[in-house]
């Protein structure tokens, strides 16, 4: 089964335009940030524009191939072996997956292979003091983890009020009255996602299902996990929230 030049150009046009549309849908629908850091928005927008441009060129080729079908017959078939069919099929794969599988951010299911950290190495980006300049009740999970990392004496942070959003992860290292409230941090795309979490202590900790997004309010205390100081929130209030439009933290 050989693809004619004309059919090849038609499928090429459809796939290229489909890619452009897919990227635009991601950008406009807001689910782009399930996949990449927001600083690459311009890159994806550029990509969508180029896809459209290439689709237009392929479309014109398709039209031209139609006009010249009779003249070109002999040599347009010349180069078309199985290879082109394969590349059409493979290049269509991201489209199939992208449109058929509902867009979902990484969740606690990904933690099995990626692990979770309550104390980053040196943390990513930013100066050492930046997260302390953020008012305590606006600090993200990542800010708290970093603050504990950089602080010479984390116990100074105890007693400050915490106000964080993340998903519930029941870490096997923790007792029944605690869980981790976690976020993935994404520097580039989800391939480099790195989970951070802080411990939440609450009487009804066990009642919260893993993976559920929650808003936790409480007071910071210093706990210890695997021998390192780790932030702990003595929860005063935990309530369920919808998945935030930007599910990851961007360091």
């Amino acid at each position: 089964m050989k693809l004619s030049e004309r059919n090849y150009r038609l499928l090429q046009t459809l796939i290229l335009a489909g890619m452009g549309v897919y990227l635009l849908v991601k950008i406009l629908g807001g689910t782009l940030y399930f996949y990449i850091n927001d600083r690459f928005l311009w890159l994806v927008a550029t990509g969508a524009a180029i896809f459209m441009l290439l689709a237009l060129a392929a479309f014109r080729r398709w039209r031209a191939a139609g006009d010249h079908a009779h003249h070109d017959h002999a040599h347009t078939h010349h180069g078309h072996s199985h290879g082109s069919r394969w590349s059409l099929l493979i290049v269509a794969l991201p489209l199939v997956l992208g449109f058929l599988v509902p867009a979902k951010p990484l969740d606690s299911g990904a933690l099995a292979a990626r692990g979770i950290s309550t104390n980053l190495g040196a943390g990513s980006g930013g100066g050492q003091a930046t997260q302390l300049s953020v008012p305590a009740d606006q600090r993200s999970i990542l800010d708290w983890v970093r603050a504990f990392n950089y602080s010479a004496d984390p116990s100074e942070l105890a007693g400050e009020s915490a106000n964080v959003v993340g998903f519930v992860y029941h870490d096997p290292r923790l007792p029944a009255n605690q869980f981790l409230v976690s976020r993935f941090t994404v520097t580039c795309c989800v391939a480099d996602a790195f989970a951070v979490g802080i411990i939440v202590e609450s009487e009804d900790a066990a009642n919260w299902a893993g993976n559920e997004w929650v808003h936790v309010q409480g007071t910071i205390a210093v706990a210890s996990l695997d021998g390192n100081p780790a932030p702990l929130v003595l929860a005063e209030d935990i309530k369920p929230v919808p998945v935030p439009p930007q599910p990851y933290l961007f360091p």
């Binding site: 996949y35 994806v44 599988v101 979902k104 990484l106 299911g109 391939a191």
Partner: peptide
């Protein structure tokens, strides 16, 4: 894990395709 696979795959693709 299928969800994780799809998200990571599309993430790399969306980032690298441009």
């Amino acid at each position: 894990s299928f969800n994780t696979f799809t998200t990571i795959f599309l993430g790399i693709f969306i980032e690298a395709a441009p």
